[in-house]
Design a binder for these strands. Structure first.
Length: 278
DNA sequence: TACCAGGTCTGAC
DNA sequence: GTCAGACATGGT
C-alpha cells in the first residue's frame, strides 16, 4: 500500500493534465492503468495497486517537487507563477515507453477524449484481461500482438489516418531494443524517434518527456503556441524554433514548466466554456 | 454548419 | 529550406 504525498501532489491535476490517457474517475476516486499494472487511488490518499514499486516510480514520488515549483516561480514571469500555482499538484509520470509511443502517435491532430476512447478499445481488443479489486481491466498489448495486426484492423478501431502509423511502428519497434535508448542523449533520442513515420517533433518531445523522463524536452502543440503568442508575445512561427526558445530558457525544468503551462491554458478554456453553458 | 483537437506527411516551389 | 493542403473522426 502506498500513500499520496500531502504536498505537491494532486491526483486529478496529475491525470487530467494531458500526459496520460488510461484512467477513470468515479466519485473522486481514480483507477489508473499503466502497462500491465493497475492502481486505485482513493480520495483518502490511499493507493492500492497490483505493484507498489511500479507505481512509486510511476508517480515520481522520489522527486522534490517543491524545488520544481520554486524554480518555476523564480523566473519572475507572471504567467509561470499563475500556472505553477494552479497546477502545483501536477507530477510528470514515468510511463511505459511502448505505451507512450503508441499513445502519442495517436494524439496528433486529435482531442483527448477521443484518444482515450481509441486506446481503451485497442487494449480491450488486444490486451490481456486482468483483474484487480474485483474489477477487470486490460493490460497494454504486447509489441508482438500489436505488430500482428494490420492497418485495416486499427482503422476499424477508429484511429483514422493514423492507423498505418501504428501498424508500421509496432513492426519497426519489434526490431529495436527500446530500453537501450535510455543511454542516448535527449537530442539523439529525438532523432531516433523522428525516423518513425507518424512521429514528428512535437510527438517526439512528448515521448522523450513522458516515456523517458527527459525533462529538458518542451513539446510545442496548439495550446503552447497560443501561450507563446499571447503571453510571451513571441513572433516565431516555426514550432522547432519555439521549442528551442523555451528549452534554452528553462533548461532541465522545461518539461515541468511545459505541463504547468499546458494544463493552465487548457483548463482555463474548459472552465470558461462550462460557465457559458450555465 | 464549420471549426477544432497535445501534428505529420507529401509534393510543389 | 519553406509552405499549403490533405488527412479520419468526434465533440462543440
Amino acid at each position: 500500500m502506498l500513500k499520496t504525498p500531502e504536498k505537491f501532489f494532486d491526483i486529478s491535476d496529475t491525470l487530467n493534465c494531458g500526459q496520460v490517457f488510461r484512467y477513470t474517475e468515479k466519485e473522486g476516486n481514480y483507477t489508473v492503468i499503466s502497462d500491465k499494472e493497475c492502481a486505485f487511488v482513493g480520495k483518502d490518499g490511499i493507493i492500492k495497486s497490483t505493484n507498489d514499486e511500479y507505481f512509486y516510480n510511476y508517480f515520481d514520488f522520489d522527486r522534490d517537487y517543491s524545488a520544481v515549483y520554486s524554480a518555476t516561480c523564480s523566473f519572475g514571469i507572471e504567467i509561470l507563477k499563475k500556472a505553477a500555482m494552479y497546477g502545483k499538484g501536477v507530477r510528470i509520470l514515468n510511463q511505459d515507453k511502448t505505451e507512450i509511443i503508441i499513445s502519442f502517435i495517436l494524439s496528433q491532430n486529435n482531442n483527448i477524449p477521443r484518444i482515450k476512447g481509441i486506446l481503451s478499445r485497442m487494449c480491450a481488443a488486444l490486451g490481456q484481461e486482468r483483474e484487480f479489486l474485483g474489477e477487470k481491466y486490460y493490460a497494454f498489448p504486447s509489441l508482438k500482438k500489436l505488430a500482428s495486426k494490420d492497418a485495416e484492423f486499427y482503422y476499424a478501431l477508429g484511429m483514422g489516418y493514423r492507423a498505418p502509423y501504428i501498424a508500421q511502428t509496432a513492426v519497426k519497434l519489434l526490431d529495436e531494443d527500446i530500453s537501450s535508448w535510455e543511454k542516448l542523449t535527449t537530442q539523439s533520442l529525438k532523432e531516433k524517434l523522428l525516423t518513425f513515420k507518424g512521429i514528428g517533433p512535437k510527438v517526439a518531445d512528448c515521448i522523450s518527456l513522458f516515456g523517458f523522463g527527459r525533462t529538458d524536452s518542451f513539446p510545442v502543440d496548439t495550446w503552447i503556441e497560443k501561450i507563446y503568442r499571447e503571453d510571451f508575445k513571441g513572433e516565431l512561427k516555426d514550432r522547432n524554433k519555439i521549442t528551442d526558445y523555451f528549452t534554452e530558457l528553462f533548461g532541465e525544468n522545461s518539461g515541468f514548466i511545459q505541463q504547468y503551462l499546458f494544463y493552465y491554458k487548457r483548463e482555463k478554456k474548459l472552465r470558461e466554456e462550462k460557465k457559458c453553458h450555465l
